[in-house]
Amino acid sequence: MDPRTPPPDLYGRPRADTFLRFLTAFGDRYSPALGGPLLRRNPRRPLSRPAPALRLVVAARRTVAADAVELTLADPSGGLLPPWQPGAHLRLTLPSGRERHYSLCGDPADRAAYRIAVRRLPDGGGGSAEVHDTVHPGTRLTVRRPRNGFAFCAEPAVLLLAGGIGVTPLLPMAREAQRHGLDWRLVHTGRSADTLPFAAELRALDPGRVHLRADDEHGGPPTGAELLAHAPRGAAVYCCGPAPMLAAVQRALDASPAAALHFERFGAAPVTDGAPFTVRLGAEGPDLAVPADRSALDVLREARPDLAHSCKQGFCGTCEVRLLAGTADHRDRRLTPEQRAAGALLPCVSRAAEGETLVLDL
């Protein structure tokens, strides 16, 4: 017998072992590595269902910077809210039906309320304007429970870089770093001093660790090297802000004292590896050309301005449409293989090969 061939029995006996035969057959059938189907769900275990949305009331509203307001959301009955960690965000359904994501900026230890801050964006999709114009104390909102795609790992040395309203997920991180005695720094940049939310709250944590920088006082925005010069040696950098700020930090990282970078974007990353393709609205069209440097969502919204969207980064699922025909290059971070096979598509990030036509049911 070839010494590399396992014996037919666990103890080397010439006859086959019943248990080993059963185990092999089970593995052949159910192990994904061997090409068998995935393990079936236990039929006696009920299917898991997503947690129900929360119905919260705006308990307070205050101005925290020029064109930025903070909302405090609470359970109308006074109950405790689900826990969360620094970096988490909420998905709000606004009175109009629009859905928007906002980072939690309060204290995770406070289970009585959630705090978010919203800056009015004149060239946005209307969500921020709706919050500023129509959401006031007493307004009730449907809120999806906190989710975290920007988790804080509490490394021993930390640099937090915030651009404008991007301070919202970093404020709880600063509290956490202070609470645990980490070696942390925070740099908050913006067009002018009055556009920097929570300046007093940040200074109250530890004024020696917080640097507020207004562009109009320094002749323009900071360079990536200037921002990273505040990093303790070997620090993990957490950055949230506009795309130019993030790009500058990424370019300067290797030459800085920092060791790692975590980031959250305000909007979608620029398309750098796309090819032109076509989206067709229904079987009869019309056909819309998607250039190599634009997203399908941007093109679709020119034809259908009311098409729902939010994060534009492929994780919230708000812009989901149904793919009727064509081969898509799925680039999202939300849909499961089963959902994609059933026709789900997120046009904010997903694309197709050059010359391909994706037929969509909107």
Score class of each variant (00 low, 15 high):
282 G>Y: 11
283 A>Q: 15
241 G>F: 07
268 A>I: 00
281 L>P: 06
277 F>G: 10
243 A>I: 14
286 P>W: 07
262 H>G: 02
284 E>N: 13
260 A>I: 01
262 H>Y: 04
261 L>Y: 12
287 D>V: 12
286 P>Q: 04
288 L>N: 00
246 L>A: 04
250 Q>I: 03
284 E>R: 15
252 A>H: 09
288 L>C: 01
283 A>I: 13
274 G>W: 10
243 A>W: 15
277 F>A: 11
279 V>K: 15
266 F>A: 03
250 Q>F: 00
242 P>R: 13
279 V>I: 11
286 P>C: 07
286 P>H: 11
284 E>D: 15
280 R>D: 06
288 L>Q: 01
280 R>P: 03
249 V>R: 04
261 L>M: 10
259 A>M: 06
287 D>M: 13
275 A>T: 14
268 A>S: 00
283 A>K: 14
267 G>Y: 03
243 A>V: 14
244 P>N: 08
274 G>S: 04
265 R>A: 02
263 F>D: 04
256 S>G: 01
281 L>M: 10
248 A>C: 01
255 A>W: 12
280 R>I: 07
288 L>M: 01
242 P>Q: 08
241 G>V: 09
257 P>W: 12
285 G>K: 12
287 D>T: 13
274 G>A: 00
287 D>G: 09
257 P>E: 10
274 G>E: 00
261 L>I: 13
262 H>W: 03
280 R>G: 09
282 G>R: 11
265 R>K: 05
271 V>E: 02
279 V>T: 11
241 G>M: 06
251 R>I: 05
253 L>A: 09
248 A>M: 02
262 H>V: 01
255 A>Y: 13
267 G>H: 04
280 R>C: 09
253 L>Q: 10
252 A>N: 05
270 P>K: 12
277 F>E: 14
285 G>R: 14
245 M>G: 09
251 R>L: 14
265 R>H: 14
277 F>I: 08
249 V>P: 01
260 A>C: 00
285 G>D: 03
273 D>Y: 13
244 P>D: 09
266 F>W: 08
271 V>W: 05
279 V>Y: 13
249 V>C: 01
246 L>Q: 11
266 F>V: 10
258 A>N: 12
241 G>H: 11
248 A>I: 02
247 A>S: 02
269 A>Y: 03
255 A>P: 08
285 G>E: 08
269 A>C: 04
279 V>M: 13
263 F>L: 15
244 P>H: 11
284 E>T: 15
279 V>W: 13
250 Q>G: 09
264 E>N: 11
277 F>H: 10
267 G>C: 03
279 V>A: 12
255 A>C: 08
278 T>S: 07
246 L>E: 07
251 R>E: 14
280 R>A: 12
254 D>M: 08
245 M>V: 04
285 G>H: 12
280 R>F: 03
